[in-house]
Structures are given as C-alpha cells and as structure tokens.
C-alpha cells in the first residue's frame, strides 16, 4: 500500500509536468481526484480494507498526498489562468497610435462667440439685451439720432438705400430709440446686431458687419460712469491688466463724445504688431447721450442723463483671434470656422 501511494505520487508529478492548459489540468484532476474513479479517491476508499494499525499511518500518507495534489493543482490552475489571460490580452492588443475615431463636430462662428461673451458680461452688469430691425426708416437711423437731412452721414455713398425713407441700418444706435419707445428710463440695454455700410471689401472693411450698442439712462449717470463701465467691460473681455483711454471725438448723438482705446492686450502698451506700434487699440465710440436725442424720444434731459457706446464685433474678433483679413469672417471656409470653439 505504501508503495502504491509513492507510485501514484511519482506518476502524478510526471503527468503534471505535461500539463499545458486548463483542459489538461482538469483531466489530471479528474484522474486523481475524480469522485468515482480518481486514483487518490480509490486509495482513500481502499483504506477501509487495511488493518486498523496500518490504516492510521497509511491514512495519513494518503491524506498528505491528497492535500499536496490539491495545492499543486490550484497553484498550477492559477498559473495557467494567468497565462491564458495574458494571451488573450495580447491577442486583443490594439495599436494605440492609430487615430481615434472622432465624431464630426461643428463650431460656432467667431462673431457669435464674441457676441455671446459680450452679452453675458453686460447681462451680469444688469443690462438687458434688445434688438431691432435691420431695415430702418430714416427717422430711426438718422433723425432721431440728431443726424438731420443733409448731414454727411446720410449720404448715399455710406448708406444702402431701399427707397427714399428706408435703408439698411448703418448703426445699432437705432435700437436706443426703439428701446426708449418700449421702456421708460431708468434703463440699461445693449443691442448687438448686423449693420451695413457701403464700404468696398478690403482686409479691414466689409459692407456688412456687427456692432454692439450700449445705453444706460438714469437720474444720475455721469461720464465717470461711462468710463468705469467700459473699463470694467474691457477688463473682463481682455484681461485684468488692460487699461482704457478716452479721448474727445464727435458723434452727432452724443455730447460730450469720446473715442475709447484700450491698452494692447498683447504687448501691454509697449507697442507691437497687433496694436501697430501704438500701444493702444481703438475699441469704439461713446459719449453722453445728446439732450436732443433724449428730448426727441420724450425724455427730459434735465431729469435723466445717460451714456451710450458702440463697439465693433468684427474688429474685436480680428484682434482677439489675430485675423489679418476680416473678409475671412464671411467666406465661411470650413478650415477657418473649425478653428473656433464648439
């Protein structure tokens, strides 16, 4: 019996050495530990026939063998499983340097990106967004803005006319007047929109472009407030270090009028290509709303004062994104559009 145990052990070791995969392992297990005909199972079963003094000793031997077999098989199983898994992973390995399968994304137009950003800045400062028609009467586009008949700004060389009294609006200031008809002061509005001027296209002009108009009207609005408001806007739009500069100018609908410049956000004012060496970049026109404009809209200039400003979005887009030719904005070349945000 003892020899038999040793024989089984030796045979097992030999067979285990041959095991290459899990299936073979299962076969070996069945042969030795199978519930009916397993060699070790049979040995255990054979113990009953032994005399009691031998049974104890042989029993321990058989049991040791069984435990050894179980432990060895388990160890081998783990090894084989690890190997099988490793092989599977190897089979499933991909070339991670192949390009990803990217869904096609479109992009919003740079003018939209800037317009939405400006809207959000001013809405957070308490302004409401207003709009008005793109075809305007001479009243809204000119007369109500203190541009009387005969004024150079009305000439056909600058304005697209549809008829005597109708034209494509040349400025978003028209919305000031419309807003004043809808709501009474105090008010704060901005009006982004498309405007048209008879400019032949070149790298800095298009016959169609976008402006945003701003208007604040209240009992105690001052020119200091105008300065502070645009300074705050520029800070949020271009960065905290950017400064503004106001210099006298002329617009028929404001008095005093100013041109507002901001310190170049690229060079900080030292002079570079973006600001053409000047250190300052023109942002737009602004001023205190002309008393005649207020009276025309039925607002008493002794009771209310206000400021207005007009900024060009195309110019801002050109500055922010470094466009050298703003005609690109309306060519809609996908290679251009795709460079802008989602």
């Amino acid at each position: 019996m003892r020899e038999r145990v040793e024989q089984v052990r030796a045979q097992l070791r030999e067979e285990l050495a041959q095991v290459a995969d899990l299936a073979a392992l299962v076969r070996v297990r069945d042969r030795y530990l199978g519930r009916k005909s397993g060699l070790i199972t049979q040995l255990i079963r054979g113990l009953g026939a032994l005399p009691p003094e031998e049974r104890r000793e042989i029993g321990r031997l058989v049991n040791d063998l069984k435990e050894e077999v179980e432990a060895t098989l388990e160890q081998l199983r783990l090894q084989l499983e690890a190997r099988a898994e490793a092989e599977r992973f190897e089979r499933e390995r991909v070339d991670i340097t192949l390009p990803g399968l990217r869904p096609v994304f479109g992009a919003r137009h740079p003018i939209t990106l800037i317009r939405e950003r400006i809207e959000d800045i001013f809405v957070s400062m308490g302004y409401s967004v207003e709009s008005g028609p793109e075809i305007e009467t001479s009243y809204y586009n000119f007369d109500a803005l203190n541009i009387p008949p005969g004024h150079p700004a009305r000439e056909a060389q600058d304005t697209f006319y549809l008829s005597e009294g109708l034209a494509l609006r040349t400025q978003t200031s028209t919305v000031q007047i419309r807003a004043l008809e809808r709501r009474r002061p105090p008010l704060r509005i901005i009006a982004p929109g498309k405007v048209f001027r008879r400019d032949t296209p070149d790298p800095t002009h298009n016959p169609m472009f976008f402006q945003v108009e701003g208007l604040a009207l209240d009992h105690e609005i001052t020119m200091g407030d105008l300065k502070g408001t645009l300074q705050e806007f520029v800070r949020r739009m271009f960065g905290p270090q950017v400064r503004t500069r106001f210099r006298p100018s002329y617009f028929p609908f404001t008095e005093p009028s100013a041109e507002v410049d901001f310190s170049c956000f690229v060079c900080g004012g030292a002079g570079c290509r973006v600001c053409k060496g000047a250190g300052w970049i023109e942002l737009g026109g602004c001023g205190m709303v002309h008393p005649r404009v207020l009276r025309g809209a039925g607002v008493d200039p002794e009771e209310f004062t206000g400021f207005a400003f007009g900024l060009g979005l195309d110019r801002m887009a050109a500055l922010m994104y470094g466009l050298e030719d703003i005609r690109l904005l309306y060519e809609n070349d996908l290679r251009f559009l795709e460079q802008f945000g989602f």
Partner: peptide, 18 residues
Amino acid sequence: YDAIPTTLPRWNGYGELL
C-alpha cells in the same frame, strides 16, 4: 478726459438676454 473720475453707476435693476 483723464481727469474725470472712473466710477460705476448705481443700479438696482436686473439684466436679461433676448
């Protein structure tokens, strides 16, 4: 214009999009 102080208007209204 530089001599004019830079201030922000007082306001207790609210703003909204179109």
